[in-house]
Write a protein that binds this DNA or RNA. Structure first.
Length: 502
RNA sequence: GGUGACGUGGCCGAGUGGUUAGGCAAAGGUCUGCAAAACCUUGUACGGCGGUUCGAUUCCGCCCGUCACCUCCA
């Protein structure tokens, strides 16, 4: 393991290799974003978190990062294209669903789910990309790319659309290993049918469809772009013809990324992306996450308060839980892990409070600096080693325990080392110590009737405790418990929080 | 059928050719009016069968199991 090189598994070569940036000290990075036809779920976010951690780790190395992640706001075809030749897409489907009826049209729906995506993005403290391009805002570039491919004789037009001619790209299959044409053709799945396609593997660059809910005028008439072309185009627009890393979920390896390579490299005649990084799907409680199994969770399902129908999970606990398995291994998301993550987040926060408190203490010899510096380098080393988050988190927790262990004895210079350490853990893992939104409810003045009631009861309880009326104090504790409030007594008085529903 | 991963103690998960990951949970203890937090103590695992080796959980082969993709998917 190298000390200052970021190594990642490269799907293209099948091995972990150092990321060698095209330009020294600068990372050009594209990460595939979601289609916004519904609420993003925790599996989506596991993949976005991988991208986030790549950016954080690269920055920790002092690299400048150009980070582009898109929003796919064009509906693409569903697999019952055969049954519905008019070309119903995911968004059109969503619009007809119970959830989607309230939207006036498909643009309205896309706009709503994009906003929600960004809310969740902020809740989980994901880094803002340098650019967040939307497919619908780059239609012209997509049309031009397709035109270029047609001019080169690499793409051809039929009655139904424009297709990429696989036979013109011998490297097709280099990413996924799906090189065997016959196999693909005899796959059990039905493929998009067009009698005029020259090769069953040829994929759509443009679909002619005057009935599609989103359509644009092109040299081939009214229609909409193929799914893969948007990422090629947006990546080239903002990062240039060649990039260092391209990332996404493992399901995107084929066909999406395979097709992106074919298109992009046919256009530029250069290697599109040097490093391909894919995040594995997660399972929930040992099973595939699916609505029918009742183990399907969106971010908001978990972080919304119980009054809002959620489970009141601290967003940072959710974030930590989602990164507590390495991105490249199958990960079993469980509520046990989520509970453990809550403890970890609290532990980090309280270490931070301890450290901050120690700044005002008398000065003295720094008793933790060296050990924390070691832990900090092993934390970074773990991340550089193919984003070994479990190992990095272990180092962060160990540091927090070390700081907590000093407690009252923390002097000012130890406190400064402690804060240094905690701050680098925070920026590397993306776990801030100040709640961005859910500030400690007991500390904030609020007009929430529940909070007013809680404060009142706590005052009564404090009085009862002062006069040693513990029976009354416990009674109030119980009453609050029934209201979903947990009370914690400390040396400086009592604090409280909403209990979570997990 | 094809391609690619993965299988570690009750659970989540590092790691390694011979010496303790870590966390959560559990049990006992210290502290605290109660509760929480914190701290201390306890617990020896690597799917199966072969092979290489002085020695394999770690390398090799086969098998079993799980997951993903094979034109909707993070």
């Amino acid at each position: 393991m190298s000390n200052d090189k970021l190594s990642l598994f490269n799907t293209l070569t099948g091995s972990v290799e150092p990321v060698r940036t095209i330009e020294d000290g600068k990372l050009r990075f594209y990460s595939c974003g979601p289609t916004v036809y519904s609420y993003a779920h925790i599996g989506n976010f596991r993949s976005f978190l991988t991208a986030d951690l790549i950016v954080r780790t690269a920055r920790a190395l002092g690299w400048e990062v150009d980070y582009v992640t898109n929003v796919t706001d064009v509906g693409h075809l569903t697999d019952d294209d055969l049954a519905d030749a008019s070309g119903e897409d995911r968004m059109a489907k969503a619009l007809k669903s119970d959830e989607g009826r309230r939207f006036a049209n498909v643009y309205d729906l896309a706009r709503y789910y994009t906003e929600v995506l960004l809310d969740d993005w902020h809740s989980l403290n994901l880094i803002e990309p340098t650019v967040r391009p939307r497919a619908t805002e780059h239609i012209r570039q997509q049309i031009e790319a397709v035109e270029h491919l047609v001019e080169q004789g690499i793409a051809y037009e039929t009655e139904k659309g424009v297709y990429f001619d696989i036979s013109r790209f011998p490297d097709y299959g280099k990413l996924s290993g799906n090189r065997d044409a016959e196999n693909l053709e005899q796959a059990v799945r039905d493929v998009v049918q067009d009698e005029e396609k020259r090769n069953a593997r040829d994929f759509a660059l443009w679909k002619k469809d005057p009935g599609h809910l989103m359509q644009w005028y092109s040299p081939w008439g009214w229609g909409f772009p193929g799914w893969h072309i948007e990422c090629s185009v947006m990546s080239m627009e903002y990062l240039g013809e060649q990039i260092d890393i391209h990332a996404g979920g493992e399901d995107l390896i084929f066909p999406h990324h395979e097709c992106e390579i074919a298109q992009s490299e046919s256009i530029s005649r250069k290697t599109f992306a040097n490093h391909w990084v894919h995040t594995r799907f997660l399972q929930v409680e040992g099973e595939k996450m699916s609505k029918s199994k009742g183990n399907f969770f969106t971010v908001r399902d978990l972080i919304a308060t119980p009054d809002e129908g959620g489970r009141g999970v601290d967003p940072m606990a959710l974030r930590l839980a989602l990164i507590s398995g390495q991105y490249r291994k199958p990960y079993n998301f469980t509520f046990e892990t989520l509970k453990a993550s809550m403890k970890h987040v609290e532990r980090l926060r309280s270490a931070f409070e301890t450290a901050r408190g120690g700044l005002d203490a008398a000065d003295g010899p720094d008793r933790v600096g060296d050990r924390l510096a070691d832990l900090r380098s092993s934390m970074l080393a773990a991340m550089l080693d193919d984003l070994n988050t479990p190992s990095a988190i272990a180092a962060a927790i160990e540091g927090a325990k070390l700081i907590q262990g000093l407690g009252e004895n923390l002097n000012a210079s130890s406190a400064r080392s402690a804060l240094d350490f905690l701050q680098s853990a925070s920026s590397l893992l993306g776990i801030p110590y100040h709640d961005q939104e859910a500030e400690d409810p007991s500390a904030s003045a609020s007009h929430d009737p529940l909070e007013t009631r809680v404060e009142e009861l706590l005052r009564q309880r404090a009085t009862a405790r002062e006069s040693k009326d513990f029976e009354r104090a416990d009674q109030i504790r119980e009453e609050l418990d029934e209201m979903g409030i947990e009370v914690m007594d400390g040396p400086g008085g009592s604090s409280w929080r909403r209990k979570t529903e997990i």
